[in-house]
Simulated assay, not measured.
Amino acid sequence: MPAEHASQHPLQSLRDFLHEESAGGIVLMAAAALSLIVANSPLAAPYFEVLHRHVGGLSVLHWINDGLMALFFLLVGLEIKREMLEGQLASWSQRILPGIAALGGMIVPALLYFLFARGDVAALRGWAIPMATDIAFALGVLAVLGSRVPPSLKVFLAVLAIIDDLGAIIVIALFYTEQLSFVALAGAGAVLAVLAILNRCGVTRLSIYLTLGVVLWWLVLKSGIHATLAGVMLALTIPLRTNGAASRTDAAAPLHRLEHGLHHWVAFLIIPLFGFANAGVSFAGMSVQTVLQPVPLGIIAGLFVGKQLGVLGCAWLAIASGRAQLPVQASWRQMHGVALLCGIGFTMSLFIGGLAFGDGGELMRETKLGVLAASLLSAVVGIVLLRAAAPRATT
């Protein structure tokens, strides 16, 4: 590894992260579009048959959602830990604006969904679906706008989405856990304790952590807690420093090496594969009445309307009260545009929908319809507003 790369500044790491997430978001859009085409073509039957074929005790779809997505959650956990300790969330002054905006962007959409679904007990299980923001998709849209959006807003959106992911992880752990197996849960706790001890003892060999991480994943899968949360648990134990390192920003640290190694696999394979496997919804037999059901209406209202109100409203309160400042070179119209992009729920929304309603059935079909419609609407209106809000070039 070159010396200049090993001493890479956290801001450069964030720039690389934004670039990779943006490119990954564009690939994700293509995968989602392809899944819709396949699901509404003569290939629909083999597409769904392959996804539900069992291999090694789990369906292909479960291996993607419970297995590969654990690596996505591992990466999310690494990003949260790094940002909290040395990045854009390292101090309260840096956390307050995206933190308050993210909180509003989770609470208001959930409340709006509840209003639409309150008469349907089954539909109410999906209350957390519109809380999520898809960081890859949203940053991919910003990448299309290029220099029309100031860098400070891209950082704001990235940090807000990371906090949003943390909120989604907590919600999944608390509200979407099946019946617990306390034996498996105790085993998972023991493995997690060993991982924490290894960290405290200065062990930095990633192979040891990853091997125990596989055992942790299997035990969490058997415990009733969603298996992907094992990725977050493992991430919190990965060391952020090397033996004798003078700075936590050393790129040779296990956390930095693992994060860097996972980025491309997650951005360009795992997330697009998840999108291709989960976004496919057949429009056969659908009508306007389908869209007017509580689940799709609640999701569209939550993601498209609720995210705007929650993110922009809470950001305004934080700035008006003097607790935070508007991002550098950003206008309120641009903030509104970014708040709209937060309504692109996609990956995490579909993931929570699967936890709420299962992989099949009419409610999951309605969930896919609502998430796709709300995400597309948020992206299109957000792009239009951000293009209109861009400062005009002077001659």
Rank of each mutant, 00 (worst) to 15 (best):
S152Q: 10
P109R: 03
D120Q: 13
H263N: 07
H256F: 08
D16C: 08
A284N: 01
V108F: 12
G313M: 03
F182S: 14
Q334W: 01
I383P: 01
F357G: 01
S152V: 12
F304V: 03
A324W: 04
S207P: 08
M131N: 04
S207H: 07
V305S: 02
G56F: 10
D16L: 15
V295D: 02
K368W: 01
K81F: 12
G343Y: 02
H226L: 07
A3T: 11
A252E: 03
G231N: 03
A168W: 02
G99L: 09
G280Y: 03
V338P: 02
G119D: 14
M233T: 07
P98H: 09
A235V: 13
S147C: 08
I238S: 03
R205S: 13
I271N: 06
A284Q: 11
R323Q: 12
L386A: 02
A246Q: 10
I26K: 07
A168K: 01
C342G: 15
S152A: 15
G313L: 06
L68W: 08
D120W: 12
G224Y: 06
S41N: 07
S321R: 06
A136G: 14
L34I: 11
I96L: 11
H263M: 14
L174R: 10
A279C: 15
L124G: 04
L216K: 03
L145W: 03
W63D: 02
A318K: 04
V266T: 09
L115P: 01
G231Q: 01
A390G: 09
S147I: 14
V220Q: 00
A339M: 04
H226F: 09
D134W: 13
A70S: 09
W127H: 04
V27Q: 00
C201E: 10
V381Q: 00
P239T: 11
Q179C: 13
L198F: 08
G87L: 01
H9C: 15
L11T: 09
E362Q: 13
W316G: 02
L377Q: 06
N243Q: 13
Q334V: 10
H336S: 15
L36G: 04
F276G: 05
G261Y: 11
H264F: 13
A184S: 09
V194N: 02
H256C: 10
H336L: 14
L85R: 08
L174A: 14
